[in-house]
Simulated assay, not measured.
Amino acid sequence: MSLNIKDHSLLDELGPEKIITLKDPNVGMTGILVIDNTAIGWPAGGIRMAPDITVDEMIRLARAMTYKFASYRLKVGGAKAGIMANPLSDKKDLLITSFAEAIKTFILEDHYVCGPDMGTYDRDIERIFNIIGKPGLAPKPLGMEMNGFPVEILYTGYGVCYCIEAVFNHLKKRGVFEEDYKPKIILEGFGKVGIGVAMSLKELGYKLTGVSTIKGAIFDEDGLNLDDLIELKHQYGDDLINQYQSKNLIRVKKEKLFELSSDYPTDFLVPGARPDVINSDIIDKIEVKAIVPASNIPYEKGITKTLKEKGIIDFPDFVANAGEVLAIGVNKIAESPEEIFDFVRSRIYEKAMEIITGAIENNLSAYDFAIKDALSYVKKYLNRKAKRTEKLNKRYQ
């Protein structure tokens, strides 16, 4: 990976503060660390592994983390790291080991706080902390489960559904939906986050009509059986797509799943995979009330303007998928999963309604208002940092 930034507008007054490429030619490791902003606090963000990551993508992901922490007024800065490799590679452990040695200084001196992301898992992060000599920093499992899954992997998915619930209730008050109507949702991806989404939708009584994995996509306008999906996930992993059966089932390529929203009544789309899936190629083929992302940076640059023109709510990803970072504040003292999820719901639902109301009052899209809100918080700390620098400069003149 060369430091080839295609979109220089990504470099602005907020950051990034540091863009570091990490290489180990001996084992073929190429990685990158982007520290976006530390004005509010130590930088934090996950480490993803994918063969096609780019510098632009990592800068955008780091900024999304800045927005996420700022949206919820958490005193943490944004960052993101990536390893350019196939996460299914036989060399994964070796690449993680090499990456750990390369990133050690930045964890210990820059206080970069890392966690798992797409293509990495808790055991990979544990490996990194063991290698750098700080095993105590590795995340510890809580030992709590729901439906056979550790609660830690469910926070983000549940948080996304709390946003769907907020948007749905808002639209229902405006008369868009009947009181007893159950919304229909299409979900991209059925990994850790997708499982949480499905479990939460079941509790809410909402209909999941479509879902995808890397193996393909399935759709049933009458609704997919969520219990069957979860059980098949346990048994077959991503191949659940080929194992699931129902009377009116439609099988399509995973890239075509969202397009079914223009042929069948659909209320919400939930992007849950790679960046920019809501783009100019698909925008004319989707018809929904709102998009509530589970993944980061799902909106192609400039597409939110078109969504607003179409009357589609472009809910911000960095607000919707914050369940995991919010849970950190309570999961060590909570006595039950319910206590954790109640806390996460209270924070996310309140913020979601704030975004929806603020967007209407300011005649902005939900996404644009959320960025404005996050920036107001970050800039306050940037101003404080600037004043500290000025004072330090005067002291040594």
Rank of each mutant, 00 (worst) to 15 (best):
R174V: 14
L137D: 12
E145G: 09
P141C: 08
E152V: 01
L171R: 06
L154E: 04
F177K: 03
G157P: 14
N147Q: 10
E178L: 11
V160K: 03
M146N: 14
Y158H: 04
C163L: 07
E165A: 14
F177C: 05
N169M: 07
A138I: 05
M144K: 03
V151F: 02
E152Y: 07
M146K: 11
C161Y: 05
P141T: 02
N169R: 14
N169Q: 13
I164K: 02
G175I: 03
F149Q: 06
P150H: 01
F168P: 00
A166I: 05
Y158P: 09
V151C: 04
H170I: 06
Y162E: 07
V167T: 02
R174L: 15
K173A: 12
L137Y: 10
P141N: 14
P141H: 06
I164C: 00
K172P: 04
P150N: 03
T156C: 08
G159Q: 00
N169T: 09
V151H: 01
A138E: 01
F168M: 03
F149R: 11
E165Q: 15
C163R: 00
G157F: 01
G159R: 02
N169G: 08
Y162V: 10
E152F: 01
M144Y: 05
N169P: 14
A166F: 05
G143I: 12
F149W: 02
K172T: 01
V167L: 03
I153P: 05
Y162W: 11
G175P: 11
L154P: 00
E178C: 13
V176T: 11
P141R: 10
G143W: 11
C161H: 04
G143V: 08
F149V: 05
F168I: 05
C163Q: 02
G148I: 05
G143D: 10
I164H: 01
P150V: 01
L137C: 11
L154Q: 01
M144S: 04
G159A: 02
V160L: 08
V160A: 13
M146P: 10
Y155R: 09
V151P: 00
C161Q: 10
K140Y: 10
P139R: 02
N147R: 12
H170W: 13
I164P: 00
N169K: 13
V160T: 09
V176G: 08
V160W: 01
I153D: 04
H170C: 15
V167M: 02
G143E: 10
C161S: 10
V176K: 13
K140D: 08
A138L: 02
K173M: 13
P141G: 12
L142N: 10
P139N: 12
Y162I: 06
A166P: 14
K173Q: 13
G148Y: 05
Y162P: 10
G175L: 10
P150A: 15
F177R: 07
